[in-house]
Structure formats: structure tokens, C-alpha cells
Design a protein around this nucleic acid. Structure first.
Lengths: 122, 122, 122, 122
DNA sequence: GTGGTCTAGACCACA
DNA sequence: GTGGTCTAGACCACA
């Protein structure tokens, strides 16, 4: 379920966090479903448990999961989170578009690119 | 000309690099114009010359400036660089749009956002 | 494994870089094998860790190694790099042959020299 | 007669030295012909006289020119120099071919390249 | 004066 | 323990 790319420049905990966010957002994991335990996942991925712990902490802080002591970590109801993440997304998009101005890329070119990216949506 | 944000998480050399890229791309600094010397900028920003050195090395490697030993650093002809950076931009945009799918943001919403961002272009 | 020539005019980081390129290309070090840590190699060679750091940065930028923060540096899959380096080699060869014309060295003499150099290949 | 490339990584004095070597070897300048004075060339190239001085010193040391105090610098008889330079050339070629082995470039490929380079010689 | 390299040593994020 | 960034400061080649 989780695949690590050791040659990726980003820290491992971030890769794990992002992957779980994807699994949760795409509906592969559903509300109240249990995540693998810190230790079992650490063994499975052959990495330090601290790294999994950190990833789970980030997920909890962002509202994607909740922790029940002595029981484990579970997928949260993510309605609110999705709303917040939308803002985060637009912040990043804004920052990126500002860079586009540096490279004199034209509006039409970018709009077309975005449009083509979501070709399957109407 | 250069303002450092010490609370920014990114390294100082990266902030400096990005700022010069902006100045060069926006035409504030032109081809063959001399950049401030490593030492003078270090004094001005109250940081170590090595940090400026690193920023200038990055700029040179990316093709934004060229160095003449014993003379100084100068803005390069950036035609080729701009072309390459366009690809970098689209790579980043693609990566970002993939995240949008996670948050179930609709095509129309994003296209409108981009379109509004460049409101002054037709 | 690494021997420094202090009387060599080239910077130390360059000597280190070249030596590792040789070890990797010749197959003494193989894909995914770990390089000595920045600190340990610095102690072993009695030089500053920054110098090793710089050498490793160059190797990473050129694609010979990849870095995993907190874990170490590892030999990369160098297939692509080898292809690029071939072009670099021919550029240097061309530049050198142009100088040969200055010294009126005859074609046959050079061809024979090259041929003799690789005497063991057919 | 001398064109400087400010974006060239090599020092100016080296560019000047190489250019004169070329002019002398190719027969554009002949034995006992006078070189431009240090000052006049410095003015012409808009660079520091020290730089020209350094280039002329290198040329003299290598035997390409001789200096007559109070008169100027003159092209030397370069028969001996040519012989020495041949050895320098082969040293460089050897060093380069050793690198070829790193990149597993085949003998035939290199021999063909050299052969094609001097296509106009038989 | 200008950039390039290097040392010594600190502090941080990550595993 | 591992790499990444930065400071303070030295010495060198080049102009």
C-alpha cells in the first residue's frame, strides 16, 4: 500500500504522509478504518518506527486521522479537512502562477494546459 | 534590492537565488549588468560571504549569470534558460494538479482561478 | 580507497569527485552501495567535512550518487550518466585535436597512438 | 587579432597566450616579427596591462617569444618548442583516453572519430 | 578588489 | 548517526 522512493529528495515521513492522504482522499481508506500500527508498518517498510510515528502525527495534526490510545490510528471524517486543503491548494497554485510571470508564459497556454489535464471532466 | 526573510524555512542562499532570478526575468537587471560583489552583498545583508557565493554558484549553474574571475558576476543572456524553465514550470504545475484530484476540486473552478489570475491579459 | 595529492593544483573536492567517478564507473562500487559518510571520510582523509560535502554534491548533481537525508549517500544507477559523459568526452577530444593542428602532428601518428593505447581491444 | 571571451571560465591571460600560440603555430606571425606592446594591446582589449604582461611571460617561458628590453617582444624560432609541445599533447591525449575507459567507449568508435576529424588529410 | 577554495566549528532536520 | 546550512575567517589566483 505504501511504496517508498529512497532516491526521492523529500523526507520519508513526508512521502508516507502524502501517500496516506491520497489513500484517504481517493476513498481507498474510509472513515473509522484502522491504519496499520506504527510497529508493523515500520517492519514492513524496513524503516525506523520514529519515522512512521512522525508521519502519523502529521496526519493527525492535519485532521486526516485520529488516535485512540491503546487501540491505534483511524481514518477521520475528512469533510472539514478537504475544505481547508482547498485553500492550501490555491495558495500553492498562486505561488506557482507568480513564477509563470517570470518566465513570460502566456495566460492562454496555461489555461489550455490545465484544461487538457482534466480532459475527462467536461 | 534583496530582502531576506529569516523566518522563511528555506535556506538563505535559495531566497537570494530566487530573488535574483526574479530581478533578471522581470528585466530589472539586464544582460551583462554586474551583480553586487560577493563581499559587498554579504556586508549589506549582514550574512556570510559563503552564502552569497553559494547563491551565485546556483545562478551560474542554471545559466542566469556568468562569472569572470577577478572581475565579478554578470547577468547572462537568458533566452535558453527561459525555455528550460518553462518545462520546469509545467512539471510543477502537473504535480500540483494531481493533488487537486485528491481534494476533489473541479476542473471549472481551477480554470476560472487561473483565468482570473491573469485578468489583465486577454 | 581515496588518495589525495596535496601537490595537485586541482581542488581537493574535484580530486575526490573524480576518484569516486572512477570507482563507480569501473564497477568497484555498485548501484545502491553506500559511500562512506561525510564525517567519517573527512576524518579518514584528515580534511574538512565541508570539502567532502562539496564533492558529494557534485556527484549527486551529475547523477552518480543519490542522497537520502539522515541515511547517507548511495551509488545511483548510472546508465543515463554514462550516455551523457560520452558527449562530454567527445567534446574534450575535439578541443584537443584542434590543438594538434597547431603543432602539425599528422593524422596517422595520432590514429596510431590511439590504436596502440587500446592495444588489448581488437 | 585577439578576441576575448569574457564568459569563458579560463583566465584572460590564458586565452591571450593560447591565441598567440595559435597565430604563431599557424604561421600568421613569423619568426622575429614583433608582438603588439603590452600597453597598446591592453588599451585595445580594454584590460589591465598586468594581464598582457602575464600572457607574454608565459609565452616567453614556453619559448614562443623572446623579449628585448626597451624594444619589445618578438616571435622566437619555434622548432624546439613544437617538439616539446608534441609531448605535452600526447600526455593530454593519454589522460583523456584513460577517462574513455571509465565510460566504456570502444576503441573503434574513438579511432573512427579521430580519423573523421582529420578527414582532409589522407 | 574580485571570486574560489578550504578549515573549524556550530546548529538543525531526519532516521 | 547522517546529511544540510551557515558563520567566521584564512589564503590563493586573477585583474
Amino acid at each position: 500500500m505504501i511504496i517508498l522512493d529512497m532516491s526521492d529528495k523529500r523526507p520519508l515521513y513526508e512521502q508516507i504522509t502524502e501517500r496516506f492522504i491520497e489513500l484517504i482522499c481517493k476513498g481507498v481508506m474510509n472513515t473509522n478504518e484502522q491504519l496499520p500500527s506504527v510497529r508493523s508498518l515500520a517492519v514492513e517498510l524496513s524503516i525506523n518506527p520514529n519515522t512512521i510515528q512522525r508521519a502519523y502525527s502529521e496526519l493527525e495534526r492535519a485532521g486526516y486521522i485520529y488516535t485512540v490510545k491503546g487501540k491505534g490510528n483511524f481514518v477521520a471524517d475528512i469533510k472539514e479537512v478537504l475544505f481547508e486543503q482547498k485553500n492550501v491548494f490555491y495558495d500553492e497554485l498562486k505561488r506557482l502562477l507568480e513564477k509563470a510571470e517570470n518566465y513570460s508564459i502566456r495566460k492562454k497556454e496555461i489555461v489550455d494546459y490545465v484544461s487538457d489535464f482534466f480532459i475527462n471532466e467536461d
